[in-house]
């Protein structure tokens, strides 16, 4: 069983799927010869050929737009946006076409394609390298939005995304690309898109997180473990479609709710989750459902980013606050 980190899990999954399914093609900027700026596609061109893993001109709309045509013509493109902040030129394609093709053609053309992108802050990078924009995609009918948090999940979810008959936005928390390693089974497996994972069960409060913040929440829970607070931690894994059932069931049990995300607060995913809790577990609540989120500001450059990035202590304090309401 190989010991993989998140980035090598992506590479491993792509490699396996390209081997299994000849219609899978992988491309983007620096993706081919170099193997990606984060090395997600390292070695794939050499192994699977320049036809199936290649570099493109530097044009995001061209990358996504051509993937639409590829998918219509029988391929399964897995394209990379070098950073999620660079996806903006491709939004015309993603929101205007990718999300709509199945409905527009009444099911004649579905688009089995994956748009991968490193996302989120915490790597002390330039502007447009640290955004968390999962909400924009999640608000768009026709897209699925998946965010893995561990190497095991990365492999299972990426394989599920490639095999999904609908387009999947695959957001990779780049802060934890190399943060830790995990045993990942060599054999083929997928994880269901649209299902959250209960990371640990608890009685007093439900905490929902995804991506890089799963680890931060786990650290927070460790910090308060001696305080007699029992936390149920849920890793959402998929932002859209949302696993409302798991969340509501959990809050009906715990009576308290916290969602933590790095995306902006206003109109963000936390607002959606709190509405979900209010609609599904209102009479069970013992404290106001709460969100701990990024501020409604442009994400700061590295010297100011520490204010924006949510740390375990902030999560722990927020849990204490809710439990003592």
């Amino acid at each position: 069983m190989p010991l993989l980190n998140n980035i090598s899990a992506i590479n491993h999954a792509l490699d396996k799927e390209m081997e299994r399914d000849k219609s899978v093609v992988v491309y983007g900027e620096d993706v081919g010869f170099e193997g990606g700026v984060f090395r997600a596609t390292a070695g794939l061109q050499k192994k699977h050929g320049v036809d199936r893993c290649f570099d493109t001109p530097l044009a995001e709309s061209g990358i996504v737009g051509s993937a639409v045509g590829m998918a219509v013509n029988g391929m399964k493109p897995v394209v990379e946006m070098q950073f999620s902040g660079f996806v903006l030129p491709a939004m015309n394609q993603i929101l205007g076409h990718v999300a709509r093709y199945r409905n527009r053609t009444r099911g004649r053309y579905n688009l089995p394609m994956v748009i991968r992108m490193p996302y989120g802050g915490g790597v002390r990078a330039l502007e447009h390298h640290s955004e968390s924009m999962e909400d924009i995609f999640a608000q768009t009918p026709g897209l699925k939005v998946v965010i893995p948090s561990t190497p095991y999940d990365t492999k299972g979810l990426l394989l599920a995304a490639i095999r999904d008959p609908d387009p999947v936005i695959f957001l990779e928390p780049k802060r934890i690309y190399r943060a830790f390693k995990q045993d990942v089974p060599e054999e083929d497996y997928t994880l269901p898109i649209g299902k959250a994972k209960i990371v640990q069960e608890g009685e007093d409060i439900t905490v929902v997180v995804w991506g890089a913040l799963v680890r931060e929440a786990q650290k927070a829970i460790k910090e308060i473990e001696d305080e007699g607070i029992s936390v149920e931690l849920i890793d959402l894994r998929t932002i859209s479609p949302l696993d409302k059932e798991t969340i509501i069931e959990s809050v009906q049990k715990t009576g308290r709710f916290l969602v933590v995300h790095e995306a902006f607060k206003s109109f963000g995913p936390g607002a959606e989750l709190i509405s979900t809790v209010n609609e599904g577990a209102f009479l069970y609540l013992e404290a106001p459902p709460t969100r701990l989120t990024g501020f409604d500001i442009t994400i700061p450059l590295p010297k100011g980013e520490h204010h924006f990035i949510i740390e375990p202590k902030q999560i722990a304090d927020k849990i204490r606050e809710i439990v003592s309401f």
């Binding site: 093609v25 036809d51 199936r52 709309s61 061209g62 996504v64 737009g65 051509s66 993937a67 639409v68 045509g69 590829m70 998918a71 219509v72 013509n73 029988g74 391929m75 493109p77 015309n92 394609q93 205007g96 076409h97 093709y101 527009r104 053609t105 053309y109």
Partner: peptide, 25 residues
């Protein structure tokens, strides 16, 4: 034939993608 494309010129990239797939196949 693909459906009508309202966002002007965006369909041209779809056409190119179809051709890229044609070449691969």
């Amino acid at each position: 034939m693909l459906p009508i494309s309202v966002p002007i010129a965006s369909q041209l990239n779809h056409a190119v993608g179809i051709g890229m797939a044609t070449n691969i196949k």
